[in-house]
Amino acid sequence: MAKLYFYYSAMNAGKTTTLLQSAYNYHERGMRTRILTPMLDNRAGEGVVASRIGLRANGMRFARADDLLALIDADIAENGKLDCVLVDEAQFLSKAQVWQLSDVVDRRGIPVLAFGLRTDFRGELFEGSQYLLA
């Protein structure tokens, strides 16, 4: 049974490294993953997910208004079976996108691993984190 997981921790705690390691572990077993990364995060380049220790992978960029279920369905139609979706900087998801990811899990049977911050520097929940926790 597929599930939606939310891994959160402080900045510089290794979330992206863990995401990239998870993707590697799936690939090592012959499974296909899709990494999603928000358009506003272009620190390592557009569509590149990179850890501070030098690991990197290409990701599919998404905007706040994008329908993530539709993006995943299009990816499957183009590339075939998908075994896992990994989301970097998940705190930037909208409420609707969190629900779309839950549809990826419930309707498509694909596990989703989301990684991000829980709160901002004032201790306020990010929107994406709020609904991932809920």
Rank of each mutant, 00 (worst) to 15 (best):
V48D: 01
D66T: 07
R56F: 00
R43H: 08
I72Q: 00
D75W: 09
T37D: 01
D73P: 12
L68K: 00
D66N: 12
R52K: 14
A63Q: 11
G54D: 08
E46Y: 15
A57Q: 11
D75L: 07
A65C: 11
R56T: 01
A65I: 15
R56N: 02
L55N: 14
R61G: 09
L36R: 02
D75V: 09
L71S: 06
L69T: 04
M39I: 09
D75R: 08
L69G: 06
S51A: 12
E78T: 15
D67W: 12
M39A: 14
A44S: 14
P38L: 05
E46T: 15
L36A: 09
S51G: 14
D73I: 04
I76Q: 05
G54H: 14
I76V: 14
S51R: 11
A63I: 02
V49I: 09
D67A: 12
R61Q: 14
R43P: 10
L40C: 08
D66I: 06
P38A: 07
L55K: 14
R43M: 03
R64H: 08
P38W: 09
G47W: 00
L36W: 03
L68Y: 03
R43K: 15
N42Q: 14
V49T: 06
A77F: 09
R52P: 03
A65K: 15
A70G: 10
I53P: 04
D75S: 13
D73M: 07
T37M: 03
R56Y: 02
L36S: 04
G47N: 09
S51E: 13
M39W: 01
I53V: 15
I72M: 03
R43L: 06
D41L: 03
A77M: 11
I72A: 02
P38Q: 08
F62R: 00
N58R: 12
M39V: 14
F62K: 02
I53T: 13
S51F: 11
D73F: 02
N58E: 12
E46R: 15
A57L: 10
V48S: 01
L40F: 04
M60Q: 07
D75H: 13
V48W: 00
D73V: 08
L69E: 08
A65H: 13
D66S: 12
R64M: 06
A63H: 11
N58Y: 09
L55G: 10
L69M: 10
N58C: 08
L55T: 11
G45M: 04
A63R: 12
L36N: 06
